[in-house]
Amino acid sequence: MKKYLEIAKAYMKTQLIWRWDTFIDVVLAMAKVIFAWILWSILFEGKEQIAGMGFYTMISYYIISSYLFQLDKSSEISQQMTNMLRNGTFSKYMVIPVHTQAYFVAMAAGKIVFSACICFFTTILCFYFSGISFVAAINIKILFCGAIMIALGLLFMAELNYFLGILTLKFEEISTFLMIKDNFSAFVTGAVVPLALLPEWMLSGMRYLPFYYVTYLPSMLLIGKQG
């Protein structure tokens, strides 16, 4: 376990090297809050609620879900794996005493932790200075469950991308699989359109898909809705 923590730490350190990337992360986190405010201000004009959510609840949902969506760095796993398998450099992970799958998960975790911290503090500061009220669950148990679900969701995405990366061994070219996964997960996770806006039959169908639990449900839990 210690070795994987060290791997995560090494990748976290690599993120810290790039000062411009860090700056861009901060700017994007701020832009997200501003964009959400503008977008939902227009959509809420003359309305009290949309899909059972008030203005601030909707902004909070949007910010949390896009924050979680941005946290998911797992697509880098499949990209990196497919590139390395195709140019023959993947074997460097096979000759060291680590579990390759765990190595890539630790790698994604290291990258996520850094990004999570930067974006979290920027978002909090944005909310504070802009005066937008942030709607969040006040029940500790629910918050805790939400946090667990986020961790499991990110783990699921990392594993999924690892297995998609492995498909390179069979198909060599996996960009179609990755495109399907990206579009599908962006839609089903609720990061593009809040799932609450969709018809009930579609929503209940999505409950059977793991992506539902990656962004949408934790976001709803964190803003105090049960999903």
Binding site: K3, E6, I7, K9, A10, I17, W18, K92, V95
Partner: peptide, 28 residues
């Protein structure tokens, strides 16, 4: 065993060798 292949670096280009050695201390 260990393998050193010209094209497959085990070093992290963004980090120092000291950092990579620390990582390999844990890996091995």
């Amino acid at each position: 065993y260990a393998v050193v292949m010209g094209q497959k670096s085990q070093l992290f280009f963004e980090l120092t060798t000291e950092d990579t050695l620390k990582l390999f201390q844990q890996i091995y």
